[in-house]
Structures are given as C-alpha cells and as structure tokens.
C-alpha cells in the first residue's frame, strides 16, 4: 500500500501559462515513454521478480515514478490555468481543449491516448530489466527533446530534475540486472526463466 505526502518530489511554481508547451509536455504523462507507463511498468513487473531485493527496487522506483507522474501533471495543469479563449485558439492545445477543457488526461504530444501496450511485463527478469533500462533512456531522450523547446526557467528546472532521475534509475536497473545474472548459470543466462521454470537455485 502507499502513503501520500502533500508535496511534490521537486517544487513546481509556474507563473506564466503556456498551453502550446503543455500540449508537448503532456507526452511525459501519457505518451509512449511517459511517467504513467513507467510507474505501471515497474509496479506490474515486480510480482514475478524472483529476487526480493530486485522486487524491492522495482517497488521503490515505481513509487518514485508515481511522484514524477504527479510532477508532469502539475506542470501541465499550471501551464493551462486561467486560460482565455485567445490563449487557446491557434495552439496545439485547441484540439485537446475540445475533449478535456483544461482537465489533465494521459495522452502523447501527438494526441494518441495512453495505452498499456506502451510498457511490458514479460514475467522474465532479464527481459523485464532490459526493458526497464531502455525505458529510462527513452524517457531521458524525451526530456532532452522537451528541454530544447523550453525557455521558461519555472518549467525548465523541474524538467532537468526529472531528466536526471532517468539516469539514476538507469544505473540502478543496470545493477539489478547484474544481481539477477549473479543468480543464474554464468555459462548461459538464458538456460531457464527463473521467474517461471523453478530451477534449483537459492532464493535471495
């Protein structure tokens, strides 16, 4: 279960609305490499992770991703507060406004709705951890792309923080993969799936 804390992981106070930018940044909420997919990926994968410490890491990173989902949603919300119709017309936000007004809803920058196919839970520790490492790099690239579009320091600073966390998570997942491999047959990591085939290896 979870406990809630009434603050963000990193403070966000955006003074100037910018619906055009919101319609780009929303991709890190519900897009292909966004924080909703990230949190659901790790929190779904952990059940079949046979090594307790790696399952624990998936829980802790998955939990932090929920905090990132909240940060990205907050950026989108603060960029679309108190808009006038003139500020909406002619921007990319216009089509979004038709369906959601200024509500926050998970979609990609190109308008594609969030879809669970954007992440995998394969039930194989090596496969899942490789996906996790790739996911952190894909999210980092997306933050890089967004950072090139942003000038407002109120938006830039939280995006830079989120980008940095992708790097840390990538590092931790690499270590987790090493832990998994240390539990396997060093001559053939793929001899069996430790989450399914139940070989005679000690649980850690």
């Amino acid at each position: 279960m979870w406990n809630y804390e009434k603050r963000l992981q990193y403070p966000i106070n955006i003074k100037n609305p910018n619906p055009q930018l919101a319609s780009m940044i929303i991709s890190q909420f519900g897009g292909p490499d966004g924080e909703l997919g990230a949190s659901m990926r790790y929190l779904s994968q952990r059940y079949t992770m046979p090594y307790r410490n790696v399952g624990g890491l998936l829980t802790d990173i998955g939990t932090e991703e929920l905090g990132h989902l909240e940060m990205v949603s907050t950026i989108v919300h603060q960029l679309t507060r108190n808009l006038t119709m003139d500020q909406i017309k002619g921007t990319n936000f216009e089509a979004y406004y038709v369906d959601h007004t200024a509500g926050v809803w998970p979609q990609a920058a190109g308008g594609i709705p969030f879809n669970a196919c954007e992440f995998q839970s394969k039930g194989d520790p090596i496969t899942d951890l490789h996906e996790d490492m790739a996911a952190e790099q894909k999210a980092r690239s997306t933050y890089d792309n967004l950072i090139r579009l942003v000038k407002d320091p109120d938006v830039l600073e939280p995006l830079k923080f989120l980008r940095e966390r992708e790097l840390v998570h990538y590092q931790r997942f690499g270590e987790a993969l090493r832990i998994v491999q240390d539990n396997l047959d060093s001559k053939n990591f793929y001899a069996f799936n430790p989450a399914f085939d139940k070989p005679c290896t000690p649980k850690k």
Binding site: R7, P11, N53, G56, V168, R172
Partner: peptide
C-alpha cells in the same frame, strides 16, 4: 522549512535506491 524538507527527503529517496542494490 519546506525547502529543507525537499532537500532531506530527496537525500532519503536517492540513498534508498542506492541501498536497494548496495545493502
């Protein structure tokens, strides 16, 4: 005080992930 809470909480959060793989 809130800024301080942000800082010490981040330290706890980040070291938690590190300890998960370096217990």
């Amino acid at each position: 005080l809130l800024k301080y809470i942000y800082e010490v909480s981040f330290a706890v959060n980040d070291i938690t992930l590190y300890l998960d793989t370096h217990p």
